[in-house]
Design a protein around this nucleic acid. Structure first.
Lengths: 157, 157
DNA sequence: ATCCTTGCAAAGCATTTGCAGTCAC
DNA sequence: GTGACTGCAAATGCTTTGCAAGGAT
């Protein structure tokens, strides 16, 4: 185990509070705008991990003249403020996840759909794989700070 | 545990043999060409996980007039033949990995570099996380067939 | 008042496609 | 000989950028 990962595991909050948005943007030296708030609110409200296009389509209901470029910039601002994460896959557009605590994903190989797993993040999982792993990597000059686990499969027909 | 993953775990060969290329392409209904062989040979020879551009640059030393489009098509043929895997990340181009057995990766957050982990693939790891996980997902209509684990961190300065 | 952000259009990068000529089987 | 593959150039999809007008502090 190691401190960075323990800190990740101890975070209790998943989706950030609304007031959190202002604080987080501030901390990153960014301004709170109507567009960013709308993008954040939408991302916070959905279970799925939408693409920029999907966010654009949804946010347009509130701000009809918002541009796709602004949505991209807003998503980037959220990532920079550590309120969201960008998930990339081999095919199709990137997807955005606004849960900022450590957690796992399942991904459907047929549809590309990504969902969160309710399973609690296990900071000891790498030790269960091999108790000497983290130390031996450190000795080889690689400092492990985090890990990602993703389950692949498909939804039943 | 489940059959698909057990099969993955039992595969002993990592990097495929040269003769393997013909068989694998054949099985996928694809032809063996000089271009595909060169791409495969290069991918097999390197520890890193190169992008299509990098493969192109390298293979051009053997086949100076090969086109980038052909490299993309060759890489796709290898993926289709299960001789390589395509790895995508939030930034930059996709990377290709020709180890076809299940294994783990480490990724440097500073440089984007990706390497294989020597640690053996553990088909029971998900059970160690939560013994009821795979069953409970199945009951919810999601069939797990595989998982990906990636260690994040950075190389010491 | 200052500097950041928006929205538009244009550019950029990674990747794919259409097609005529060539090669593998 | 037949159908698949190559190489070229053009197209596509996703994302970023430049810039003038508008908005946040």
């Amino acid at each position: 185990m190691f401190d960075g990962m323990r800190r990740l595991a101890e975070k209790t909050e998943g989706v950030a509070e609304p007031g959190e948005l202002r604080r987080a943007l501030d901390e990153a030296g960014l301004r709170l705008t109507r567009q960013r708030a709308a993008v954040f609110d939408y991302l916070r409200s959905v279970e799925s991990h939408p693409s920029a296009e999907e966010v654009y389509a949804a946010v347009r209901r509130d701000i009809p003249h918002i541009s796709l470029a602004t949505v991209y910039k807003a998503l980037e601002a959220l990532v920079e403020s550590h309120l969201a994460a960008k998930l990339a896959y081999a095919d199709g557009p990137a997807r955005y996840d606004c849960r900022c605590d450590a957690h796992y994903h399942i991904r459907c190989l047929k549809t590309g759909q990504v969902r969160d797993l309710p399973t609690a993040f296990d900071a000891e999982l790498l030790d269960k794989l091999d108790p000497t792993l983290i130390d031996s990597l450190r000795q080889q000059g690689f400092q492990v700070t985090d890990y990602r686990l993703e389950l692949l499969g498909h939804f039943a027909d």
